[in-house]
Amino acid sequence: MKRNRTMFIVFLAPALILFCAVFVYPIFRTIIMSLFKVENITSGMSEWAFVGIENYKSLVNTSLFRISMWNLFRIWLIGGLVVMSLALLFAVILNSGIRFKRFYRAVIYMPNIISAVALATMWIQFVYNPRFGLLTTTFKNLGLDSLAAINWTDSDHKFWALLFAYCFGMVGYHMLIFSSGIEKIPQELFEASTIDGASKPQQFRSITWPLLSGVVKTNITMWSITSVAFFVWSQLFSMVTAETQTITPMVYMYLQVFGAGNVISERNAGLGAAVGVLLGLCVVIVFVVTNRLIKNDDLEF
């Protein structure tokens, strides 16, 4: 028993110390910081000035922050719907008995292992490029000159260009999660219903979908966590300065605290902390709501 205790300490301590240093302590400090006016991020707690919920109030009253939250919401909702539908569609097709399943699956997941900077550059500099880009050239060759003339990364189209490119990279991951859920459904159910004359869409509606609630929950949670951290894509689509089309809360926070502040008037790291707390809250709310709405799939097979 005594030997066990040393083993406990030696084995657990490094992981727990790192966990406390990188997660527990910073989280609490961020929450506290969000209630203070902190002029310099490096200053100690003694120099902070308590302001209560002033930071949150001032964020809500800042139109750029409101825009960034609205952009995040659009990315989360519209992007989420697009990604989830494509991911589910691909997962169903992959598990419908097609050949080369592993090949298709591997290629569709591949964008997830590519550096987001590299992937976004491929989209911006190749697909959307107004001079030699894929869209422009394709539309030109099809004789659709009005479409070919569109600059996909100008401020009118930027948001949708960004969202589309982002979704392309995200489908693979969520497809794998859906696919693992579908694979767990006993094959006999499909066989039996095929014998009874059910079509593929009918099978999907009455077998696959009801039994997928667990993975739907996982997917929504993971999608929300990644959406909240939306940053690189935004930065790459607006290299020079933050634009209202592409700004997200994390970009706003970055500019507020670290930025070459061409958009930020007031130096206050407490505002940045408040952004962090709000984003954390968003994840928690989504998590609680999905858990309430979607019942666990404790169905007996």
Partner: peptide
């Protein structure tokens, strides 16, 4: 411990980056 580790996987980077930067500087 297990539950806090699982919860930490959902913590956005913005919630920890400011204190880390402050301490490190």
């Amino acid at each position: 411990i297990q539950s806090s580790f699982v919860a930490a996987m959902g913590v956005p980077m913005v919630m920890i980056i400011l204190p880390l930067f402050g301490i490190v500087t």
